[in-house]
Amino acid sequence: MYFEGSEKKAEIIIDSEQMSLLKDIDDSFWATLVEQCHAKILSTISNQTCKAFLLSESSLFVWADRIVILTCGVTKLVNSVEYFIAQIGQAKIKQVIYQRKNEYFSHEQLSCFGDDIKLLSQYVEGKALRFGELDSHHTYVFHQDNDFTASSTDKTYELLAYQISSQASIALTTPNLSAQEIRSFLAIDELLDGFIIDDFVFQPFGYSLNAIKDNDYLTIHVTPQESSSYVSFESNLNLLAMAPKILAILSPASFDILTFNEADFHGLTLKHIPSDYVSQSLVQSELTNGYQVAFANFIKPQTSYSQAKIIDINGENHAL
């Protein structure tokens, strides 16, 4: 059994002087937007500045001036972005950023990054970049190329862990796990003191969490199957500072970090990334919209031989 945990992500910023996405848009709009990419809303939490929707495939966050949406599996997130642009109107939109990372099973996807940006280019003029090596871990970023300039305080962090340890995979695939048991394993109370939390345990495996506190947010998505394990963290909290705790729990064979506007990316990685991980790829670029983007892929070098994986040649072969 496998599931494509790797997310596609979009952030769309609007002119909040023309409208408020929190006050002027009702939940039926967001339900329809999510349906465009073949997902659905499972539950919602909110405070005075943010509304967070837990989805059947990842998460949607809404503030007055922007949305952040992530979807996994074989969803077509670009369809939801197209719907947003068509319904809200290009005149109200200040910036569109669309990301897509390398997938485990790219041949199962309904489109590729090239297809997606061809569609988006019909609505916004933009530029596309690849962070990371093509034959290794990498992330594509498409962004609108206009007169928008991001604030230096507008920071986001992504930590994407691959091939979590056997112990972590076993702990997260134990039958009949409760949400509280998964929270305890991931030390959520230590990471997210004072946050409103919404989470869901999928059957037979999988876990998603949204957390909000004032303007801050964090979302976690867990695909624990050992054959394709993947755990993602996305937040405007400093995930580099949280990395030692996260890596100690999951002990992944490799992980990616992607940041927007973290000026001390190099210093923070030196300070917080454990010494048993080494960097495979380091990329840093300033986008024309003002975001300073940094990407790093880290691996834990093997010190001993492992056994080859035995494949059931009489079983399902679509994942090969």
Rank of each mutant, 00 (worst) to 15 (best):
Q122P: 03
V124C: 14
S106I: 05
K101F: 00
S111Q: 10
Q109G: 00
Q99L: 14
Q122C: 14
Y162H: 14
F113S: 09
D154P: 01
S111C: 09
N176K: 14
F142N: 07
S151V: 04
I164L: 13
K127T: 15
S166N: 12
D145Y: 10
V81W: 03
N102W: 00
S151R: 09
S151Q: 12
T139I: 13
G126C: 11
T153P: 01
S136W: 05
Q180M: 04
D116A: 08
N102F: 01
E108F: 08
H137N: 14
Q87T: 14
Q144H: 11
V124I: 12
A161F: 00
E125T: 15
L177M: 08
A171E: 13
L129C: 06
L120R: 14
S165F: 01
K101C: 05
S136P: 02
E82C: 05
F148D: 09
Q95K: 09
T156F: 00
S152E: 15
E82A: 08
T139C: 11
V81K: 08
Y123Q: 15
H143M: 06
E103G: 01
N79P: 02
V78M: 03
L177F: 00
T173M: 13
L160R: 13
F113W: 06
E82M: 09
D147H: 11
L177E: 00
R100N: 12
S106H: 04
A128D: 10
D116F: 03
Q163G: 14
P175F: 09
N102H: 06
D154Q: 09
Q122V: 07
L159T: 07
Q95L: 13
V141G: 02
S169G: 12
S165P: 09
F142A: 15
G73H: 00
I164Q: 09
T174V: 05
N176C: 09
C112L: 05
F113N: 08
L172N: 11
G73C: 00
E103I: 05
Y104V: 08
F148H: 08
S80R: 05
I88L: 10
V78Y: 03
S106W: 01
Y157T: 03
G89C: 06
Q144D: 10
C72F: 00
C72S: 13
Y123S: 15
V141A: 06
G73A: 05
K155V: 11
L172S: 10
A161G: 04
T156K: 03
K94H: 11
G89Y: 03
S151N: 13
V96E: 12
F131V: 09
L172M: 13
S152R: 13
G89S: 06
G73M: 02
S151K: 12
I88N: 09
H107A: 13
A168S: 15
K92M: 04
